[in-house]
Design a protein around this nucleic acid. Structure first.
Length: 292
DNA sequence: CACCAGGCAAGCC
DNA sequence: GGCTTGCATGGT
């Protein structure tokens, strides 16, 4: 049995004996764009309007300069510390592919991110690459977010729908998002204007939530699946991007396969654990250039 | 210089 | 329904 302990010491939260947890796996598997590795191996970023430095030594994890209240209200849920990932991995590791993928990314956790932020982040991800996605989101926050003072540094929160809805296309062009500008504005205006409700979307069953999200211009099949998985905690969602398609073709089909075929096989093989399987596969395949 | 990057929408049949 | 093409920007 795992025996994770939570202590509050010297203004930091210290977790000991954290199971299935690795910062590089968590932040480099492509689910979050606002946390970066520092030269000392720690990660620095922001979520839910709060900044965080987090570091790890083996199974011990430190959340720097954080209160118990903030940990309980934000970071405990954000890092999905409630969930038994050992059980998930053993349920998935029924073939050689998933055995390798779950062993390689053993410390992956699916972060529970803010819904609004995932909508905009994955709109930006379309036909883009991860370094540039990060750059665009950084400029979005620096220009239109609120200042956060933390550990002697200044960083920025993710801008609200209201803030972005008030912008013109040319004002938004400073973030250099290209053709995605109009999609970002469409999302912000639908939500800030009350035409679309995030709380209502949260309350919907997955298929209905997906249909509602796809009313936003720039949110299609794949982007909506990412929003469902990362922003709405729908772990059965299996986003099929070019990487997942290639790895599934290479490892399971042995031929080219359509997105629909890939989705159907994932549903069959992984079922309600599809989202976890997707993250293990994505991290493993990209790091090892499998299927390329 | 082409070609592509966690896709999508619009325009075709 | 499925299949093509243009799309902004930046990197190789």
């Amino acid at each position: 049995m795992y025996t994770m302990e939570i202590k509050y010491e010297g203004g930091n939260i210290i977790l000991t004996d954290v199971p299935d947890f690795d910062l590089r796996h968590i932040f480099d598997c492509g689910q979050a764009f606002r946390f970066d590795r520092e030269s000392d191996g720690s990660y620095f970023g922001a979520a839910f309007g709060h900044a965080l430095k987090i570091s790890q030594n083996g199974r011990d994890v430190m959340l720097h300069s954080t209160t118990e209240q903030e940990f309980n209200e934000i970071w405990y849920k954000f890092f999905d510390l409630d969930r038994d990932y050992g059980k998930i991995k053993s349920s998935l590791a029924h073939d050689d592919v998933m055995r390798q993928a779950t062993e390689y990314g053993y410390g992956i956790r699916i972060l529970k991110q803010e819904l609004w932020e995932t909508i905009i982040s994955f709109i930006i991800s379309a036909s883009n690459n991860i370094p540039r996605i990060k750059g665009i989101i950084e400029r979005l926050c620096a220009n239109f977010g609120n200042e956060i003072s933390y550990m002697g540094k200044t960083c920025f929160s993710f801008p609200t729908p209201e803030r972005l809805a008030a912008l013109t296309g040319s004002e938004l062009s400073v973030i250099r998002a290209g053709f995605r500008d109009k999609y970002i504005l469409d999302a912000a205006r639908k939500i800030a204007g009350g035409e679309m409700s995030l709380d209502y979307i949260r309350s919907l069953p997955t298929p209905e939530a997906k249909a509602e999200l796809m009313k936003i211009n720039g949110v299609g099949n794949k982007v909506s699946d990412c929003i469902l998985l990362f922003g709405l905690n729908r772990a059965d969602s299996f986003p099929v991007d070019v990487w997942i398609r290639r790895i599934m073709e290479h490892c399971y089909f042995g031929r080219e396969a359509s997105i629909k075929e890939v989705s159907e096989l994932a549903c069959e093989k992984f079922g309600e654990l599809g989202g976890f399987a997707q993250q293990y596969l994505f991290f493993w395949a990209r790091d090892n250039k499998i299927g390329t």
